[in-house]
Design a protein around this nucleic acid. Structure first.
Length: 583
DNA sequence: ACGATTTGCGCC
DNA sequence: AAAGGGCGCAAATCGT
């Protein structure tokens, strides 16, 4: 059973089962209680325009739903998917109240979510996104319209070339939207004192506003002496670059990887300075004050926020937590963190996706890179890693590029798959993940470049530019199929973990997690997700069962995507008090 | 003065 | 070992 949810012009909420006779209208304040009742009585799939419009207030009121269909996210997938036939009639047009185009970010506003003004294309060099017209989401839909749009999307799936795959993808994507809201509501448990200790050890005591930490001042002075530039401001890269050059260090940028190549007494302290400056500006005391409230870090997760289906975040940088501060992620008293990540996920996904028997054999054990060495393809584990990453990212030069051909001989099917994806991209065609998420098409500017290169009066420079842009886009599509399919595996894993945790829930532990909000205070709950890694915060007596649930969900995900393909997806998994880095 | 762009770097 | 894919964020710099 499904229930369409929509707000009325009078600010009330309609709940409609379009296939039955359920039809309710309630005050917004009464919504959580009504949803909770229906969740118990009929356990429907909730159908709504945007999970972000509804889930937060439900969670704040202590109500969680099991399943939903997010029309915005699913509509974006279907609009782009090559699994969906071209024969779209006027009757299958997306409604005005759903944003057009793939995966625009929706930003909250007073009148409800609206699409952000800019539609960002992939961040590929200087290619600009297509200009986008009026993308106003229009007024809020009525429940009948929500249900009709759901019907339209289901019909597209049914008429597609791979209905089963798309159904799984849409379910996983919608589950992801719920989980994103739940991660925000629960928050990541954070020990401010541990974080402050990390900062003090690295930077010295917290400086007064406007001053730099003493460790940074000391290092800056060493650099100035070594460069004989007594007044140099290290924070100005232009000044810094000039100073480096007049000290005889031939660099084209102040980037660390380039600095590292040079031997000069200023280099080591400069790199140390930059490391501290980064820690201070990204995760220093200011960040603590802004983001840690009541012992929780509440980032906003953006499910489906990137072209490949990986998530993004808005604010707080939750997906870029430096290893140095992860020790501050600490379970509440009486609770534990179950930390799990999928080891070598992307190469395993490639092996399974391509059904490459030789690479799958390497992907059967715990260490795929070691297995590639044992198979005699390359000499060292490092080479195996670099070669495999190079194959997936499209490396052509350097050691990585040099090793790729050996990989191609050993694993022709796997390399064939990514090479084909690259050729499709170079030709301006979309590529598609296992479950049906398709890559965006290159922007108009890209096509102009290609067209110009074929003109009779095209210059060498025109051709060079066009070829370079084509190859850039080919590297994007090459990586897209692997990264996107890995994101699908991870989403299925995450959704599976969520479902299994819900089954563990009824037994309540003795101690409540005080900062986790009304829904999660007494039950194991997800608190973090990072592409191929997740954390569950759990009462300690349930940690063993949670770990088992996480493992089972990973096995399920492998089967759901790849059936009996002989590739394993082993987890690195620990139950611990803190997320302190172990490697 | 202020918004947009660039640079550098954190994560996967 | 090399500088290949996807992101977000902060600060400096550029452009108006």
């Amino acid at each position: 059973m499904r229930i369409a949810v929509a707000s009325t012009r009078a600010g009330r909420v309609e709940l409609v089962d379009p296939d039955g006779d359920l039809r309710l209208e309630v005050d917004r304040a009464a919504l959580p209680a009504e949803v909770a009742r229906l969740e118990v009585e009929v356990k429907p799939r909730w159908v709504w325009r945007d999970t972000g419009e509804w889930a937060p207030e439900l969670l704040a009121a202590g109500v969680r739903v099991a399943r939903c269909h997010d029309l915005r996210l699913c509509g974006a997938i279907l609009a782009a998917s090559t699994f969906v036939g071209e024969a779209s009639t006027p009757a299958t047009t997306r409604p005005a109240w759903l944003p057009q185009g793939p995966a625009e970010a929706m930003v909250p506003s007073a009148s409800g979510p609206v699409p952000s003004a800019v539609q960002r294309g992939p961040a590929l060099f200087d290619l600009e996104a297509d200009p986008v017209g009026d993308v106003s989401a229009g007024s809020a839909p009525r429940a009948e319209e929500v249900a009709a749009e759901h019907d339209r999307q289901l019909a597209l799936v049914a008429a597609s070339s791979r209905p089963g795959a798309l159904r799984l993808l849409l379910a996983a994507e919608s589950a992801g939207a719920l989980i994103a809201a739940e991660l925000h509501a629960a928050g990541l448990p954070w020990d401010r004192r541990v974080h402050e200790r990390v900062l003090a050890e690295a930077l010295g005591p917290r400086p007064t506003p406007g001053r730099k930490p003493v460790r940074m001042e000391e290092l800056a002075e060493v650099v100035r002496l070594a460069l004989e530039a007594p007044l140099l401001n290290l924070d100005s890269q232009a000044d810094l670059l000039r100073a480096l050059r007049s000290a005889g260090i031939a660099v084209d940028s102040t980037a660390r990887w380039e600095l590292r190549e040079h031997d000069h007494p200023a280099i080591a302290p400069l790199i140390a300075y930059k490391r501290l400056a980064r820690l201070l500006s990204a995760n220093g005391w200011g960040w603590l004050d802004e983001w840690i409230v009541d012992g929780r870090f509440r980032s906003e997760y953006v499910a489906g926020g990137t072209a490949t289906g990986r998530w993004a975040t808005a604010g707080g940088g939750a997906l870029q937590l430096p290893k140095a501060v992860r020790a501050a992620v600490a379970a509440d008293d009486g609770w534990m963190l179950v930390v799990a990540d999928a080891a070598q996920l992307e190469p395993r996904v490639l092996a399974a996706l391509a059904r490459d028997p030789a690479m799958a054999a390497a992907g059967r054990g715990r260490d795929m890179y070691r297995a590639i060495v044992d198979a005699g393809v390359v000499a060292t584990r490092d080479e195996a890693k670099v070669a495999l990453l190079g194959a997936m990212y499209g490396a052509t030069t350097g050691d990585s590029g040099r090793l790729v051909p050996r990989l191609a001989r050993a694993y022709p099917q796997a390399m064939g798959l990514v090479d084909r994806a690259a050729r499709d991209g170079e030709a301006g065609r979309a590529v598609t993940t296992l479950l049906g998420r398709s890559s965006p098409l290159p922007p108009a500017r890209w096509h102009e470049l290609q067209a110009r290169a074929t003109q009779p009066d095209a210059t060498d420079a025109d051709e060079r530019r066009a070829r370079s842009a084509a190859r850039d886009w080919g590297r994007f599509t090459r990586n897209f199929v692997v990264q996107g399919t890995a994101a699908e595996w991870a989403l299925c894993w995450l959704a599976g973990v969520r479902n299994r945790l819900a089954d563990l829930a009824p037994r309540s532990p003795s101690r409540a997690a005080a900062g986790s909000g009304p829904v999660f205070a007494r039950i194991p709950h997800l608190v973090y997700f990072l592409h191929d890694e997740l954390i569950v915060h759990t009462p300690e007596e349930l940690a063993g069962e949670v770990a088992e649930a996480v493992r089972e969900a990973a096995e399920d995900a492998g089967r759901m995507l790849f059936g009996d393909a002989p590739v394993e997806f082993p987890l690195d998994l620990v139950a611990t008090g803190s997320y302190a880095s172990i490697d």
